[in-house]
């Protein structure tokens, strides 16, 4: 464990908590893409299957359970409790265009052709594009509530901090995983234009308005 990875995990946890609080407090999931949340749930379920087979550390196991539980709770709030506030019209990204390529790529490029490893690889590829429906929704509505932009900033920062973690681990432990690094770079790049808008607008108290 290093400071970058810890900061990344905490940023990830913060993002998930911000989202849950936003939906719970405002009793609305307006502006949130249910499709992205479905993809994140798939990411956690396919990646954290090793929860029952491999024990890494108490921290690792607890965080996996928290992420799976929080994503389940978010889906429940969005698709059951506050279903009426779900923005079906704007949340129209075709997630099969993300799922199918990730499955194919995981079958072609992986470390080991075993079920667990293919699922882990699929999960890594899927996570890198899972935010697209959310960014698509924000671009369609042209704006985002500031709480939603804080959520996106924390979520984007988590994988950016992981990039620093991978640099550190390569230098300190000569450990690297090209699949995770490649996907992490793609994932972080997808947030770049959002990061720009967040820093130039939201931090100045303005609403996140995408140029029409």
């Amino acid at each position: 464990m290093n400071i970058f990875r810890l900061a990344g995990d905490l940023s990830h946890l913060l993002a998930i908590i911000i989202l849950l609080l936003k939906i719970w407090k405002t009793r609305s999931c307006a502006g949130i893409s249910g499709k992205s949340q479905v993809l994140f749930a798939i990411v956690y379920l396919t990646r954290y299957l090793d929860l029952f087979t491999t024990y890494i550390s108490l921290y690792n196991s607890i965080m996996k359970i928290v992420f799976i539980a929080a994503s389940g709770a978010t889906l429940y709030l969005m698709y059951v409790k506050f279903k009426a506030t779900y923005d079906h019209n704007h949340d129209s990204f075709r997630i099969e265009f993300l799922l199918i390529p990730c499955v194919i790529l995981a079958l072609i490029i992986n470390h080991d052709f075993t079920v667990m490893e293919i699922l882990w690889t699929f999960s890594i590829y899927l996570e890198s594009v899972a935010i697209l429906p959310q960014l698509f929704l924000v671009s369609k509505t042209g704006e985002a509530e500031s709480i939603t932009s804080h959520y996106l900033f924390a979520l984007g920062s988590y994988r950016a901090l992981y990039l620093l973690n991978w640099i550190y681990r390569y230098m300190a432990e000569s450990h690297y995983d090209l699949i995770a690094i490649f996907a992490g770079v793609v994932q972080t790049i997808l947030y770049c234009d959002f990061f720009y808008l967040y820093i130039t607008k939201v931090l100045k108290g303005k609403k996140l308005q995408l140029p029409a």
Partner: peptide, 10 residues
């Protein structure tokens, strides 16, 4: 390659 026993990151 970069084989290693298990994925220790979240």
């Amino acid at each position: 390659g970069d084989e290693f026993a298990k994925h220790d990151e979240l």
